[in-house]
C-alpha cells in the first residue's frame, strides 16, 4: 500500500515524472474549470436563475461572508485565492468516493505546495496592503530581538498547515485501507463517509487558516501599528 499518490507514477521522462498527484490534480482542475464555464456561460441577471447558478452564487456569497467575517475587510482581493483553496481541497476530497481515484491532497507534495502558496501569498497581500517597509516592520515588533522568532513563527505555521492537511487526508485514506483489509464490508463505507466529512472540514479549516494568516498580515498589522503609533504619540505628548 502506498502512503502517497506521488508514488504512483504513470510516465517518467528523465527527472520529470507524471505521477498520480499531478494527473488527479488536472482532473480536479478540469472538473472545476469546465463546470464553472458551463454554468457561468449563460448567467441570468434577472430575478429568475438556474439551480446551478443559484448554487454557485450561494457558494460564492458564503465564501465572501466568511472572508469578511474573518478579515473584517472587503473580500474581493482575497476571494479568488482563498476560495480556490477551499474548492480545490473540497473537490479533491469529495472525489475520493470514486473508485480508483487518489486525492491529490493526500500527497504531502500537494499540501506543501498549497502551504507554500499561502506562505508566499501572506507577504504579497501584506505588502500590497501596507507597502514593503510597512510589512517588514511587523517582524521587528515588539522589539527587534523578536525578529528570529517572528520568522520562525511564519515558517512553522506554514509547515503546520501543510502537515495538518496531509495528515488528515492521508490518515483517512490509510484508515479506510486498513479497515478494508480487516472488515471488507460496510465498515469502510462508514469510514469513507466520515473521511468525506473530515476532509470537508479540513478544506474549510485550511481555507480559514490561510485567510487568518493573510488577515494577520493586513488587518492585524493595522491594529498593532495603530496601538504602537498611539503609544508613541502619548509618550511624546505627556512625557
Amino acid at each position: 500500500m502506498k502512503i502517497t499518490p506521488d508514488a504512483i507514477i504513470f510516465l517518467k521522462i528523465g527527472p520529470v515524472s507524471l505521477n498520480a498527484t499531478i494527473v488527479f490534480t488536472w482532473v480536479v482542475m478540469v472538473l472545476l474549470v469546465v463546470g464553472s464555464w458551463l454554468i457561468t456561460r449563460k448567467l441570468a441577471t434577472g430575478t429568475t436563475l438556474s439551480h446551478w447558478q443559484n448554487m454557485l452564487e450561494v457558494l460564492v456569497v458564503g465564501m465572501q461572508d466568511q472572508i469578511r467575517a474573518i478579515s473584517r475587510q472587503e473580500p474581493s482581493p482575497y476571494l479568488p485565492f482563498v476560495g480556490t483553496l477551499f474548492l480545490f481541497i473540497a473537490v479533491s476530497i469529495i472525489l475520493s468516493i470514486v473508485p480508483g481515484y487518489q486525492p491529490p491532497t493526500g500527497s504531502l507534495s500537494t499540501t506543501a505546495a498549497l502551504a507554500i502558496c499561502v506562505f508566499i501569498a501572506v507577504p504579497i497581500f501584506g505588502i500590497a496592503k501596507k507597502g514593503f517597509v510597512g510589512y517588514l516592520k511587523y517582524f521587528f515588533r515588539p522589539t527587534p530581538f523578536m525578529l528570529p522568532f517572528n520568522i520562525l513563527g511564519e515558517i512553522s505555521r506554514t509547515i503546520a498547515l501543510a502537515v495538518r492537511l496531509f495528515g488528515n487526508v492521508m490518515s483517512g485514506t490509510i484508515i479506510a485501507g486498513i479497515l478494508l483489509s480487516i472488515a471488507p464490508l460496510l465498515f469502510p463505507i462508514v469510514m469513507v463517509a466520515l473521511g468525506l466529512l473530515t476532509g470537508l472540514i479540513q478544506a474549510y479549516i485550511f481555507a480559514i487558516l490561510s485567510m487568518v494568516y493573510i488577515a494577520s498580515a493586513t488587518r492585524v498589522h493595522d491594529e498593532r501599528e495603530q496601538k504602537y503609533e498611539n503609544k508613541k504619540k502619548g509618550v511624546e505628548q505627556y512625557g
Binding site: 506521488d6 515524472s17 498527484t21 499531478i22 490534480t25 507534495s109 505546495a113 498549497l114 507554500i116
Partner: peptide, 11 residues
C-alpha cells in the same frame, strides 16, 4: 514524502 518536482507542479 515530498517530491519537489510535484510540489513545483502543484504550485
Amino acid at each position: 514524502l515530498i517530491d519537489w518536482f510535484t510540489v513545483l507542479s502543484q504550485v
